[in-house]
Amino acid sequence: TNTSDRRKIHESLENGELQILIGTHALIEDKVKFKNLGLAIIDEQHRFGVAQRSKLWQKNTSPPHILVMTATPIPRTLAMSVYGDLDMSIIDELPPGRKPVKTVHRFDKNRLKVFGFIRDEIKKGRQVYIVYPLIQESEKLDYKDLMDGYESVVRDFPQPEYQVSIVHGKMKPEAKEYEMQRFVEGKTQIMVATTVIEVGVNVPNASVMIIESAERFGLSQLHQLRGRVGRGADQSYCILMTSHKLSNDSKVRLETMTRTNDGFEIAEVDLKLRGPGDIMGTQQSGVLNLKIADIVKDRDILKHARFYAQQILKQDPSLANQENKVLLNTYKQLSKYKNIWNYIG
């Protein structure tokens, strides 16, 4: 959005003329002010940090209602839902006419068979994504792997029979948009890309997602990438490519992806692997410092505890009764460390 348009939007927001605003991370900037923000909806919640989400709370004198949406809740959010600090709605059915994506794990030695499968799908008129990891810490090496992979694909799928697109974060926006558009219009059959295609890409004709070095991706990213296919009526496939050398956590992630398409089940495995994070702070995963309880294994006990806590507060909201003095003292101790973070989902 150019500067003059932004100025008009800011003015309309502050005087209340504008009722609905749709935007990116730019909405959390300090200069974006609302007359009376009543509801904030955060899509793809896992792409925002806790501190970023908290800024929306501070956009109004009384905090707005917050709705967060995601295919795979981050461990901290899942933990908060277990504690009961978040109300949850789960959409666990596919739109009419769509089929569940079939997910398989293949080792690098099976690459020729995988390429044969790609050819078969392209003959049926389908399109294919091939995604490479691009991690900041090893960016140069990953970029080389991406380009090597692209050259290998172009060799195995030569022109004029096949057209191959490439998309990555180092490209200029116009070049990226051009390549994306070619793929959307069906002018290219294969798109080699990094995780820039993780969200916001909708090509119903794309039926195959191949994820290279799948062991290097987190469960949330793997599930998001798989969600790029299966958007049409045809059967879609997700192929997780890895070397034979896998850590135990990687094996669990790959087994989970091949076993289920349920984002909530995937998030629960992620919670077990990474820990629930800091509910009173900004850490979105990690070890929660509970003395005895285990937030995953003891979920039922936590639900019971929350139920009884609610009963006590109904009968004695200020915890003034003698039998609740211990609870009041404990609450006062905890309140010393209280901040906004424990309200942010």
Score class of each variant (00 low, 15 high):
R6S: 08
R7P: 10
K8N: 11
H10P: 01
E11F: 01
S12V: 00
L13R: 02
G16R: 01
I28T: 04
D30E: 15
D30H: 15
F34P: 04
F34N: 03
K35A: 12
A40K: 03
I41P: 14
I41D: 08
F48P: 11
A51E: 13
Q52N: 05
S54L: 13
S54A: 15
K55D: 09
T61K: 15
P64A: 06
P64V: 02
H65D: 11
I66A: 10
L67N: 11
L67R: 02
M69W: 02
A71R: 01
T77A: 09
A79Q: 05
S81P: 09
D85K: 08
L86V: 15
D87M: 03
D87H: 09
P95A: 07
P96M: 08
R98A: 00
R98Q: 03
P100E: 06
V101Y: 00
K102G: 00
D108Y: 07
K113A: 13
G116E: 10
I118S: 07
E121G: 03
R126L: 02
Q127N: 02
V131H: 08
E139L: 13
K140Q: 14
D142H: 12
L146H: 11
M147S: 02
D148V: 12
D148F: 06
V153I: 15
V153F: 07
P160Q: 01
Q163H: 13
S165T: 01
V167H: 01
P173L: 00
E177I: 10
E179K: 10
E179A: 15
R182L: 14
R182P: 14
F183K: 03
F183A: 03
I190M: 08
M191D: 01
M191I: 01
N205E: 07
L219I: 06
S220Q: 09
Q221Y: 00
L222W: 01
R228G: 04
A233D: 08
D234R: 02
Q235C: 00
I239F: 06
M241A: 03
S247D: 09
V252E: 13
R253K: 12
R253W: 00
T258I: 14
D262Q: 10
G263D: 07
G263L: 05
D270A: 05
G275T: 01
G277L: 04
Q284M: 14
S285H: 13
K291G: 10
I292K: 15
D294P: 07
D294E: 02
D294C: 05
I295C: 07
R299I: 00
L302F: 06
K303E: 11
A309T: 14
Q310E: 11
S318T: 11
A320I: 08
A320D: 14
A320V: 09
V326Q: 07
V326G: 04
L327G: 14
T330V: 05
K338Q: 15
I340P: 06
W341P: 13
N342G: 11
N342L: 13
